[in-house]
Design a protein around this nucleic acid. Structure first.
Lengths: 119, 119
DNA sequence: CATGATATATCGATTTCGGATATATCGCAA
DNA sequence: TTGCGATATATCCGAAATCGATATATCATG
């Protein structure tokens, strides 16, 4: 039995991370860019999702300090939490893509206005 | 801004009703049939959904007694609640189909493994 | 007479979604 | 220099959808 409502946000984030490691804010921008502005991942959706991905071992993470040109060496710069797709995450992404394709095939029967043969 | 997670159940039910008026149990069977058994609409999903559709004026309803060949004239037969797509429901269905097509177009950029031009 | 199919419906737990809010830094322009 | 928008991460909460389980009752078949 297929779930016809896959977690699109998870698919989308994993897809972004499949290209290159990234961090939250950049991910949200990449999603907006790749969808040509049609899909927006709000912080309230993105960060809990990223935490879930981390807990499930689909991504690995590490913190990085953002260096500023004029920054005082002692100053705490902004921190970025980087996310990298794990092997497990790659498998999950493949599963998402497969599930999407199958769901799409099924839904075609419902979005095509009643042109099926009268068997 | 598109919602990338359209209510597939609603689209599916409206799509079934676009063909012909029907009732709950028959709708769930029709969904299973048209999806070749891949999509199952459980009663706990279907009936609250139908109630919502009715409240929103997307469908009109009426009860019908199911006559049995051997039934005592006084016996209460099973009751069917028929649902018919309203003009408003037809518009909603068209909106769902349009939203689905647009969401599908957007998601293509995410399910295609990183083969985009390096602009 | 018992079982499975027909037929409708609610309950509660879980998950998801979206808006609002919170904190803090950096870059730029008035 | 001051304030504003962008960068950056994160939580809270209310609304909505989903799912499993349960409930009731009739009909058809063996």
């Amino acid at each position: 039995m297929l779930t016809l409502k896959p977690d699109h946000s998870e698919l989308v984030v994993l897809s972004i991370l499949a290209d290159t490691p990234s961090y939250g804010y950049a991910i949200s921008k990449a999603v907006a860019a790749r969808s040509e502005g049609h899909f927006k991942l709000a912080p309230s959706n993105l960060y809990p999702l990223l935490t879930r991905l981390e807990k499930q071992g689909l991504v690995t993470t590490n913190w990085e300090e953002v260096k500023s040109d004029t920054a005082d060496p002692d100053a705490d710069g902004r921190r970025r939490k980087w996310y990298r797709l794990s092997a497990k995450g790659q498998k999950r992404l493949a599963q998402h893509i497969d599930a999407y394709h199958r769901a799409r095939a099924i839904l075609e029967a419902f979005v095509t206005p009643a042109a099926e043969p009268r068997a």
